[in-house]
Write a protein that binds this DNA or RNA. Structure first.
Length: 301
DNA sequence: GGGATGCCTGGATG
DNA sequence: ACATCCAGGCATC
């Protein structure tokens, strides 16, 4: 049996931008503007109905399944009140304008952690491919005969421990396989508790996550932001680093520490949300537009 | 403690 | 065709 829920928003909700722009890698196109996945052991499909309306459906018989999905999509968030806290520089404002409807998801820690370990020096399409292969080969199948669909859950830590590092490597994970496998061991054995991270402060949580093999500051902040909901977490990848250095900090080479300091002082309580807009926007720019943007920076040297 | 280098691999660039 | 570079990092020295 399939149940569904339709949600309408005050502001726009751009599913494509939200699902496909690099925060989640386990959604698969199932139609013109719809995606499907296996999530928490059940089938979920989500569709864009209008710019401010989405519908999701599931085969789960749990009474709160749809509420869980709504939480995953962070349907309760009042975006305009978040945007209000952003700094008012012209770059941030342009990013907001161009990436209208982009939202943050609230993902499950393990899949999020594994995805970002896999993301290391990989492009989004490649990350998705590894996640797809791992799900197909090492995960469980969820069939949904009512609508003739089948999807695969991302393997749990115990599945990966059982399958071994080489099985992960066969999914094109490369050197990341070792990290995935070791993290799976830590979690499966109980030596590392992903749920306990929820109780920590941002700094404690960051320190805790970076103790895992293959997890440095960038990956930790992705997980802190996209899974645990630390709104001040601010992943600094090569793109965001370019923005900080070339646009906000006068074009000179700056240390990671200096960038952190600037971010903490400048972007405020929803820094992570702002980061997502900046990331999405600058990634879409051509070299020419990027150069023009940097040249137009009002920030001094 | 900042700065290079290797790590897997596929796709882009020359 | 073929070499080389680079991609949404981390660990190591």
């Amino acid at each position: 049996m399939i149940t569904q829920r339709r949600v309408q928003f005050e502001d726009s909700y751009d599913l494509k931008r939200t699902i496909e722009s690099g925060q989640a890698f386990h959604w698969f196109p199932s139609g013109e503007s719809s995606w499907e996945t296996a999530w928490r052991g059940f089938y979920v499909e989500v569709k864009q109905v209008s710019s401010s309306e989405i519908v999701f459906e599931t085969n789960s018989t749990e009474t709160d399944a749809l509420s869980q999905v709504a939480d995953y999509f962070q349907c309760h968030i009042d975006v305009s009140s978040v945007l209000h806290t952003f700094p008012k520089d012209s770059l941030t404002e342009k990013a907001l304008d161009r990436c209208l409807g982009l939202r943050l998801l609230r993902q499950d820690p393990w899949l999020c952690l594994a995805s970002f370990i896999l993301s290391s020096t990989k492009q989004i399409t490649q990350i998705k491919e590894i996640v797809r292969l791992m799900s197909f080969q090492l995960g469980a199948s969820i069939s949904c005969p009512d609508i003739n669909r089948i999807v695969y859950t991302f393997p749990e830590p115990q599945d990966i421990v059982r399958a071994g590092e080489s099985a992960v490597r066969k999914c094109k994970a490369g050197f990341r396989a070792k990290y995935i496998y070791r993290c799976a061991q830590e979690i499966e054995s109980g030596r590392f508790d992903l749920e306990a991270v929820r109780l920590l402060s941002l700094d404690e949580a960051r320190e805790s996550l970076t103790s895992l093999p293959g997890v440095g500051p960038k990956i930790a902040d992705c997980v802190l932001l996209f899974a645990y909901g630390f709104s001040r977490a601010f992943p600094i990848d090569v793109w965001v680093q370019r923005v900080l250095q070339d646009y906000y900090l006068g074009g000179k080479k700056v240390s990671h520490r200096e960038m952190r300091q600037f971010v903490d002082g400048y972007f405020g309580n929803n820094a992570g949300f702002a980061q997502q807009y900046l990331f999405d926007y600058i990634r879409s720019l051509s070299k020419t537009d990027w150069a023009a943007l940097v040249a137009s920076s009002p920030f001094g040297k």
